[in-house]
Simulated assay, not measured.
Amino acid sequence: MINWILISIALAVIALLSVVAIRMTLKVRAVEAERKRVLQERADKEQAQRKYLVESLNVISATFLKGELNASEAVIRCKVLLDGLVLNEQERAPYQIIETVYQLVKEFDTHAARKALPANQRMKQDLQREQIEHDYHDRLTPAFEQLKDAKF
Rank of each mutant, 00 (worst) to 15 (best):
Q103H: 13
V105N: 00
Q121V: 07
K124H: 06
R37Q: 12
V80T: 11
D149L: 14
A62I: 05
Y95H: 05
E145G: 02
T100G: 02
I60V: 14
E34I: 10
Y52E: 04
L6V: 11
V105P: 01
D149M: 11
A43H: 08
T25A: 14
V54D: 03
T141K: 06
A150K: 01
K27V: 14
P94L: 07
Q121L: 11
A48D: 08
W4N: 07
A62N: 12
L147S: 09
A150T: 05
R29T: 11
E145T: 04
V19T: 09
V101R: 00
K36W: 11
I22Y: 13
E145V: 07
V38P: 00
G67E: 09
D149F: 14
V20L: 07
V19K: 01
Q128E: 15
P142K: 03
R92T: 05
A113Y: 08
T25V: 12
K115D: 13
K148V: 10
I98A: 03
R114P: 06
A33I: 15
Y52G: 01
V31H: 07
D109S: 13
R29A: 13
N88K: 03
V20F: 08
A74S: 08
I76T: 07
K51T: 15
K151P: 00
L81I: 05
M1G: 14
T100L: 13
N58G: 07
M24F: 14
A116Q: 09
L11W: 13
Q128P: 03
L127I: 13
H111R: 02
Y95G: 02
L127V: 11
E99L: 12
I98V: 14
V38L: 14
N120D: 15
S8R: 06
